[in-house]
Design a protein around this nucleic acid. Structure first.
Lengths: 389, 389
DNA sequence: CTAATAACACTACGATCTTTACAAACCGGC
DNA sequence: GCCGGTTTGTAAAGATCGTAGTGTTATTAG
């Protein structure tokens, strides 16, 4: 292949490029007339017309015949991206649950299924829950595994090039699990495994609190704290997939931070360790001294790592997400104050607007991104579920 | 303009795209025959031939008529990128010196001029030195300011969107200096001001120790420690231009690190503060106990910040550069050991291979990058010094 | 000097987009 | 109900570009 010099463009390729342009224009906007597409793309109306007809023939677009029009002039035929031409699956394999979402090519969620898992479940049980979540989600939408065009699974811990969490993961026994192999037997389409923080960051940038920013640090705050980095609008994985794992540094007190909440004096014995943090936040809201101190200490420790990331990357925006983001009302202001104290230039700080689905939503976004790269960078063939890798 | 949907391609644009492809192919390789270009770009020989002739007519390429050939067959005419069609200037405004480099469009340095400046010089004196360095460098190469296509100036401290080091800079009085305005009066071409660490990182990736990596953390180690980040092969500035300034965090001991060297017991009074570090490194090489301790402590502190960056970004490579990189023999191994201790996945650690010119070289690279963006993204007009911004 | 080789030069062809022109469909007003 | 105004759909002509194929030219090897 030609290396970095770029490749010459001949006429069939030109048509392909313009077809891609039209597809993108269709996808980014509601059903459009040929005239609108012509204006948006700069192509002439006859050219757009021809390409649109070809796209319909290939299955990428569908026609909406003109109904009753309100404007003057002849009513226009409208073209629309056929978002149902394919489907993608996004799955969140968490500590307590597995959540599977099925979406169309627009990224609209069509179906979801959640399976609870014990925190100390062994890998076999967890994989069974994963299979069940996927199976039931597809069944409810009357889809087969072969109908999927891309699948992404979110897991806890940094994901290496082979799709394994070999460096570290808090899920017991999960370090040895070879998820790509497990799933390759079930799907013919590409399967991506990715870190949960990174996926949540993607989701937040896609349709969450960061949809207007291109340089974002996303904090996934829970009993474990992680970070996902979006720079120049693109998710950064790092060379080995371990970007954002600054919590591993002792000077950054992310490992200790949640323990302030867990070990806060006054938590009733009846509250399980998993719910302790929520109890403490609520107590702090009620004015409990110990709880307020615990939250303050938690934020102070959280802020050190956040400041390190902010100083390293100088983002536009920091998103506070994850399970603890329900308590953002208590965290955001002191976090801002700490960042002000520690950083050169303080970014905006916002709470996540996506709920517990953020990781699975990010998985969908990543699957769609992969699809875009695969379909739209090379040739635009007829839409069909890919058989090979 | 059309928003994110991309723009349609018509036939004149097609020709432009292919011309750009040929220009890039010419630039990346030694003088090429039409056949070679045809193979590299995938375009047919007649097409390449026509485009090449147009490029020659426009001034982008020059012809080498066939001389004595060694191969069989008719000797081929060769085309070559006319690197002398334009020039760029890269300047390093350091604490002790101003260094100006003039380069052609290949990035080959044609001329350099260095002017010494006192560390405590006021902005007016420093600007005078800058003007002198530029003037003499251009004069020696028989070039006028109007012949330049792009200029980049490297300064110490994070550079904001307006080209000022408003947040922080160790150079006395420099925070108020409006370098872009100062230079806009002298040049009609675009002038970029950028942080020195970032430029040195660019240089190292261009023709230094990092020329084979795409995810690089560059450490500019001297009496002050800074960092430049290259992710996915692109320099990351951060939203406000302050990426890499992790030294501002107290838990990261970068501000204190060099003081171990400066305040090392046993440094003779005759050694100036600026030379103390070099003396300590040399003493450590000779086996001096105190010096060795100082170096150890220095590396320990340096490693904390480096580890924070490594954990945050998971790079392929860490480059140890800057004034202290002459002592890399003492630093690299203990630095690797510390990173091993602190990080999840340890990147490769290398010493800078570029000398004191790295910042100015990076300035040239950035000027050329800007030129590429400007010329090759839109239309490929005749080469000429740009008049407007 | 001849054959082989590889590059150059030219022509015919096909694909693509644009421009121009005209018919079709719909609205509003008389 | 009919007619002008407006916008869309469609067809034909013109222009540009890259490809394929053919012949010509320059050099080396024998």
């Amino acid at each position: 292949m030609t290396a970095g010099a770029g490749t010459g463009v001949d006429l069939p390729r030109l048509r392909e490029l313009n077809s891609l342009t039209i597809v993108r224009a269709l996808r980014d906007h509601p059903p459009s007339t040929v005239t609108e597409l012509s204006q948006r793309t700069g192509l002439s109306r006859p050219a757009v017309d021809l390409i649109a007809q070809n796209l319909v023939a290939a299955g990428w677009a569908s026609v909406i015949e003109p109904g009753s029009s309100s404007a003057v002039g002849r009513p226009a035929r409208r073209y629309e991206f056929r978002s149902t031409a394919g489907h993608v699956l996004g799955v969140d394999v968490g500590v307590h649950k597995v959540l599977a979402l099925l979406a169309d090519l627009n990224g609209d969620v069509l179906q979801s299924h959640r399976v609870a898992v014990a925190a100390d479940a062994n890998p076999k049980e967890r994989l069974a829950a994963l299979d069940e979540a996927i199976r039931k989600c597809l069944a409810a939408a009357k889809q087969k595994p072969a109908d999927l065009w891309a699948v992404t699974i979110g897991v806890t811990g940094p994901v290496d090039a082979s799709g394994r969490t070999s460096l570290f993961t808090p899920i017991p026994g999960w370090q040895q699990v070879d998820l790509p192999s497990h799933l390759a037997r079930r799907f013919s389409c590409p399967v991506i495994v990715e870190n949960d923080c990174k996926l949540a960051a993607l989701a937040e940038r896609w349709k969450g609190a960061a949809d207007d920013a291109s340089d974002v640090i996303y904090l996934l705050a829970g009993m474990r704290i992680g970070a996902g980095l979006i720079l120049d609008g693109v998710l950064r994985r790092g060379y080995g997939g371990a970007a954002g794992e600054i919590g591993a540094l002792k000077q950054v007190r992310w490992l200790a931070a949640p323990s302030h909440l867990e070990n806060c004096p006054g938590v009733p014995a009846s509250v399980s360790p998993d719910d302790a943090a929520a109890w403490v936040f609520e107590a702090a809201r009620q004015g409990d001294r110990h709880a307020k101190t615990a939250v303050t200490r938690y934020v102070k420790d959280l802020a050190v790592g956040a400041a390190a990331l902010v100083l390293a990357l100088d983002p536009q925006l920091v998103i506070y997400g994850g399970g603890f983001s329900r308590s953002a009302d208590l965290v955001l202001d002191p976090l801002r104050a700490e960042l002000q104290r520690l950083c050169l230039r303080v970014p905006e700080v916002r709470a996540s607007t996506l709920g517990a689905d953020s990781v699975a939503l990010g998985a969908i976004r990543l699957a769609l991104n992969e699809l875009d790269d695969r379909l739209f960078s090379t040739t635009l063939s007829s839409p069909a579920a890919p058989s090979g890798a």
